[in-house]
Design a protein around this nucleic acid. Structure first.
Lengths: 341, 341
DNA sequence: CTGAAAGCGCTTACAG
DNA sequence: CTGAAAGCGCTTACAG
């Protein structure tokens, strides 16, 4: 067995042309039963497998999807990665991973890199892209989907959960439970996700004729969220805190407990995402569930649709609603039952 | 701007040959200052970027490293992924991700897939490979490194932490603190990692003239670990439990607390990995730190070494020792101070 | 159904 | 330093 077997070598051994070999390995191409047999036999004996890169070059389809991701400490993203990878793998695609640097410039460079690999599509999770890059991708005919992030006037498909509705649900639940000093540690205000959750939250509060006692930007960071919690404690005496995502909510709970406060009794905490850890005993976090499966499905089908039909590049936004998962980190409204779920 | 710009188009606009364009974009190739200028200008105007796939075909180097990973719920792996990706990105390589199915057959198929992409190397994290596949990879000249997993007589490079030493440290610490009914919920016994941690642990116990009161296989699963905890509680009355990894240790702690047991006082719990969450207030887990940075470095350099020098494929095992991180989930030995760290 | 041939977009000896 | 040409390993009209 030598290093690399080519279709030409298989052809020779099978006594057919190289084209015939190619056809046998091309789904949908026609070859007689006899040819197929001869070729398969020779291929097996030689250990032949088609070179995907060569195939990509001529077909113009690499079957690679570029994924830009950051913030892997937040359990949400590994879960997304896993589900996305599984879904794509089933369709014969694979994920080329690019971990994102923090600057916008850095991201652009990374995406350029990605495009150099002739990816068939790009999924950008929790990062923003410059309009310059938007243009390049569009002109290169590469579909881009923004995952869990929106961008004004972007030409991309955007898949998010319905953050506004989610924020509203939280406010309503807190109000129903009779909280009167409600604070918010928001997701990073530079992200649509952070802004929208806050927006829905405030809107519902407003409609109920009240308002939050304080809103601090948690920057999606554990450390910042902890500092915010202390500030809330010393300056505002909140009886409930809505936190922009679960990752920060865990930090808030840790801080509250360290200060001797009983979470769910003295102060209610609600998060957003419903990462697996939220259900673990140590936190038992009431939170809005991001419908990851449906978000992944929407992402994959947007990608496939564009790949199959490059002309119709309809920019659009899918905001999928997710339920409030009630656990014990927040006081429940009187007479509340699980029936709603 | 059209969809895809080729070097030939740049050449035409710059008034040079296509080879000249290629040279300008090939590090180390020679071109006159004048040529470089003309080409760069034309390339910028056209928005040209070399096609990595075409380059890969002729050079035989795809600059893609295949990563096979499973078990992404365990925070350890996302961290590894992130660090590995960053390190590789700096060297101009990128990771093509394959999420592993559970069966050995499945894994083999996945690796075959990987090889079809002409990856320059493969990193298999927490999975085992068949010897058949080992042979294929070796014959294709593709370096494989097993990450956090060893395999008897494997021809691969293996990078792990020193699991035996780690297990020993845990036993010693528990003994020093005066525990007398020490139990073990081990990592999956089908994995070298699980077996070795247990082995070191038992060896140290043995040398001290004692033995663990029970050893149960936690299978790296949260649910199984919880069931094991209950069984330990009802049948063995342990005063300490060494758990095969942090991910399971969290489940053990949750279960203990649900039974009203004070962790760190009534029963000590020690994990293995030191994932970020281990330091969070809710768990405050005493654990062995896996030296991820050094493990990633070792992985990357093994890969690069083989890529630069395909002939020398020295199979070897690197087991890097990590420290015991003392927190509050386990009772400390009398007079214990942090000095050791 | 099948083979010969062109071509995907590059790199790299080979001559100059 | 530079250009013409071969070749990387395939797919896909084009004729038969």
């Amino acid at each position: 067995m030598k290093l690399k077997i080519t279709s030409a070598e298989v052809a020779e051994r099978a006594g057919v042309s190289q084209s015939a070999v190619s056809r046998v390995f091309t789904p949908g191409a026609s070859a007689s039963k006899k040819t197929v047999e001869k070729v398969r036999k020779a291929a097996d004996e030689l250990g032949y497998r088609p070179n995907v890169l060569a195939r990509a070059m001529v077909s113009g389809r690499s079957r690679i999807i570029g994924l830009v991701v950051a913030y892997l400490e937040n359990q949400f993203y590994p879960i997304v990665l896993e589900k996305l990878s599984n879904a794509l793998q089933e369709l014969g695609y694979h994920i080329l991973i690019f971990t994102a640097p923090n600057s916008a410039d850095g991201i652009d460079a990374v995406i350029q890199d990605l495009m150099d690999y002739q990816v068939d599509g790009i999924v950008a999770a929790s990062v923003s892209l410059s309009s310059d890059l938007a243009e390049r991708a569009t002109q290169a005919g590469i579909p881009v989907v923004l995952f869990n992030r929106g961008q004004d006037n972007s030409p991309f498909v955007e898949v998010t959960s319905d953050n506004i509705a989610g924020g509203r649900q939280v406010a309503q639940f807190l109000l129903d439970a009779g909280h009167e000093r409600i604070a918010h540690i928001s997701g990073w205000q530079g992200s649509s996700t952070g802004r929208e959750r806050q927006q829905g939250f405030n809107a519902a509060l407003d409609e109920a004729g009240t308002t939050s006692i304080a809103t601090l930007d948690g920057m999606y960071s554990r450390d910042v969220a902890m500092a915010c919690t202390d500030r809330l404690l010393s300056d505002y005496s909140p009886d409930a805190i809505f936190v922009g995502n679960d990752h920060m909510a865990f930090a808030v709970i840790d801080t509250l407990r360290a200060r001797g406060i009983e979470v769910g009794k003295e102060i209610s905490v609600i998060g957003y995402d419903d990462v697996p850890m939220a259900s673990w005993g140590a936190y038992d976090l009431t939170t809005i569930r991001q419908p990851v499966n449906r978000m992944v499905d929407a992402t994959v089908s947007a990608l496939m649709q564009h790949i199959d039909n490059p002309n119709i590049a309809a920019p659009r936004r899918e905001a999928i609603e997710g339920p409030l998962i009630v656990r014990r980190s927040a006081r429940k409204p009187k007479g509340w039952t699980n029936e709603g779920i």
